[in-house]
């Protein structure tokens, strides 16, 4: 009797991801976010006309991992830099990848105005409720009571203020075409995140204005938890404060099935 074995590839490195080991800590969700973005770039066939803008934060070297043109911005200024590129090259696909310190603290002015202008760029916002790169200080997204190296007794909202819900805030602006929050803590949510990433690029490709996907993420290293505990902590503590949802979806996007 003869048997034929057919081999089918079900999983491989996306073309838009380079074959270099990432520098992220084990279990860090930055790597998942990178992979999802690269998969979507492949699926849309836009690698050769995509330009990425890396932030200052743990993902400062994001440009090493994407196989497309990339620039590296100053801390928080990625939306301004992306604006400069997009205005000169309107038919290219321009995206930024930013942490919560980068986007919601030092870069608050740049992100609000990029959204307000309806700048036709796509923003991926990694909310891990902490400053990862500088080893664990309080971020604007740090939860009330959350301990960090600069809020050692826990974030006291009386003196340190309240966390910022960026997706809700930016969705209020007329220039925003697509603003949603997703999470990277389990396979179901990761699949939902990928769909949102796809729609965020579609927003740009269709000229529908500013698009942002906030991705709830972990930072085991600075949270002081194991990767698994971190995923649980995200689910139990972050999602109640930062609900997953669609805060702005332009009408033209609503019909798109991905």
């Amino acid at each position: 009797m003869e048997t034929t074995l057919s081999v089918q590839i079900v999983y491989q490195r996306p073309r838009s991801l380079t074959a270099v080991p990432m520098h992220y800590c084990p279990g860090c969700t930055h790597g998942i976010a990178h992979r999802l973005i690269a998969e979507v770039i492949d699926e849309l066939g836009i690698r050769e006309r995509t330009i990425g803008v890396a932030p200052v934060g743990c993902s400062v070297f994001a440009y090493n991992y994407f196989d497309c043109d990339f620039v590296e911005a100053a801390h928080g200024r990625a939306p301004a830099m992306a604006t400069g590129i997009k205005r000169l090259l309107p038919d290219r696909v321009v995206f930024t990848y930013q942490g919560d310190g980068d986007l919601a603290s030092i870069g608050m002015g740049e992100i609000i105005h990029a959204a307000g202008r309806g700048e036709n760029i796509t923003v991926f916002f990694i909310n891990n409720a902490i400053y990862g790169m500088t080893s664990g200080q309080m971020a604007p997204t740090t939860l009330p009571g959350q301990k960090t190296t600069s809020s050692p007794q826990g974030r006291d909202v009386e003196t340190m203020g309240y966390p910022l819900r960026m997706a809700e805030l930016l969705a209020n602006l007329d220039g925003a075409g697509y603003v949603v929050r997703r999470s990277l803590h389990d396979p179901k949510n990761i699949r939902m995140a990928k769909k949102a990433i796809r729609l965020a690029f579609e927003t740009q490709l269709r000229g529908l204005g500013f698009a942002m996907v906030e991705l709830l993420s972990t930072c085991s290293t600075n949270w002081g938890l194991s990767p698994l505990e971190s995923l649980r902590w995200l689910e139990e503590h972050m999602i109640p404060y930062y609900p997953i949802g669609d805060f702005k979806v332009a009408e033209a996007l609503q019909a798109i099935k991905v």
């Binding site: 803008v53 100053a74 590129i85 000169l88 740049e110």
Partner: peptide, 24 residues
């Protein structure tokens, strides 16, 4: 051609930075 009134000089110089990276 591209003209943009930025929200601040901080933004203007970083827009310039991005635009300069395109070789224009």
């Amino acid at each position: 051609r591209a003209f943009l009134q930025a929200e601040s000089e901080v933004a203007a110089i970083n827009m310039l930075y991005g635009a300069a990276c395109t070789g224009a």
